[in-house]
Design a binder for these strands. Structure first.
Lengths: 236, 236
DNA sequence: CGGTAGGTTGACGTCCCTCAAGTATTGTGG
DNA sequence: CCACAATACTTGAGGGACGTCAACCTACCG
């Protein structure tokens, strides 16, 4: 398939490149791959020879500690660029793993960088994406530093609502393929406590789980829960 | 004073610009200011018309919550660029405050951006600095998500040791102007608990406080404390 | 039908917070 | 130089949030 006809091209970091630049992108492309849920796409994103765009499904970016615990740093959704230090090589050792079955586009890292260097619009797209990640990181840092478990989980869910809205979806009912363990590893609690928190939110009526990975959201109630952090996390 | 003769020029994001570009930088400069300890340099870095380089002293970048609590996101040291979203305008509402008496260089944001757009090396310097901040953010996210209070404090101190080494200092004894409240707000605990943790480290002999804002470090012992997180936070 | 992965619940322990009272240490005006 | 206040730090007691361990339940898949 042509990159210029890709269903997620409008959400990628290369969405606004010039029409004649699509060809170079297709030449840098080294495969259209699928992965199963739970599969690891990259073991150490700094050492990968490839860079990836997520086409379908969800994935997450996480760090592994010596004692086996993990910290999830970011969730990827279709259109997201999954190889963050594609330019700089620096950063921590972190891996990318599939939350659902995934389709992804793989590019050669060297050729991809070459394109970046040649295209101003491409470069701007990457810079904007890195800025979004930085903003997201800072918000998560504030959440982990100041909020309690229930508030952090509420903030995590509301972040997904925001992103669903950004893709033109409703927000009242969102796709939510996370299991308890991924919620736990994202907000820094144990799986069991994550279960208690989710169940607590459910009993309050703030969320409703359906059996197929979707979540009905009472946005007002979730907003109430994180009201202490609201002015900073969702600036006007 | 000329920017090209500034004592901290070697640590700034514009350290590798071409000799003829220093003049433009000086034209963008709108003042060499001093601030007292505790003073706020910027209330909302997104809305500031100026950008700042820290010349002398320490400062920190923090977010304020609705209930009055604060989360410190980053500590600035001489040479650091203190206005992170100088290009993008996005991000959360965060402020910059002086940890010690401070000397800083102020530039006009619009002119500064103009320089950025014109100079490839300047742009590279900013990109590298943003990457370092992203890396730092990710490390802190992992720390807050997975480590206990004592481990987080140890990691914070070791980060300062690392940065002191980067500036060519010894590392065995570092400048450390943080009070308990800033330690607390950086690692997400209360001031009182921060006091207990620091005192605990002192009793173990891992650190020794002197009365004038310096700290003697037993690096091996601090390293032992955060050994669970070592492989990921300090990649080989 | 049994196996496995994911989720739920309870009891109990640890880590950290809260409140309150106290002790240095620093700063300030006389 | 001292008196006094303000700031920073210390310590203890009690409670709440979250972790740990173990048992159990449920849904799914071969």
């Amino acid at each position: 398939m042509k990159c210029s006809e890709c269903p997620v091209r409008g959400y990628t970091i290369y969405r606004s490149i010039d029409p004649d630049e699509w060809k170079g992108l297709e030449q840098a492309r080294s495969g259209h791959l699928t992965f199963k849920r739970g599969q690891v796409i990259m073991e150490d994103h700094r050492r990968s020879d490839s860079v990836y765009t997520l086409v379908k499904g969800w994935a997450y970016y996480y760090a592994l500690l010596a004692d086996g615990r993990r910290q999830i740093l970011h969730f990827f959704q279709p259109g997201d660029f999954m190889t963050i230090p594609a330019l700089t090589e620096d950063g921590i050792r972190a891996s990318v793993r599939c939350l659902t079955d995934v389709a992804a586009c793989r590019f050669d890292k060297v050729k991809f960088r070459e394109l970046l260097r040649q295209s101003q619009k491409f470069n701007d797209g990457l810079f904007e994406y890195v800025s979004v990640l930085r903003r997201d990181n800072e918000s998560r840092l504030i959440e982990l530093g100041t909020l309690k478990a229930e508030e952090r989980v509420a903030a995590l869910i509301l972040e997904f609502v925001r992103r669903a809205r950004g893709r033109g979806e409703s927000g009242g009912e969102i796709e939510f393929p996370l299991h308890l363990i991924e919620i736990a590893e994202a907000v820094g609690i144990t799986e069991i406590h994550a279960g208690r928190v989710i169940r607590g939110l459910e009993r309050k009526g703030a969320i409703t789980r359906t059996n197929c990975g979707t979540l009905k959201i009472d946005e007002a109630q979730l907003g109430e829960i994180i009201s202490a952090a609201r002015p900073v996390l969702f600036p006007g």
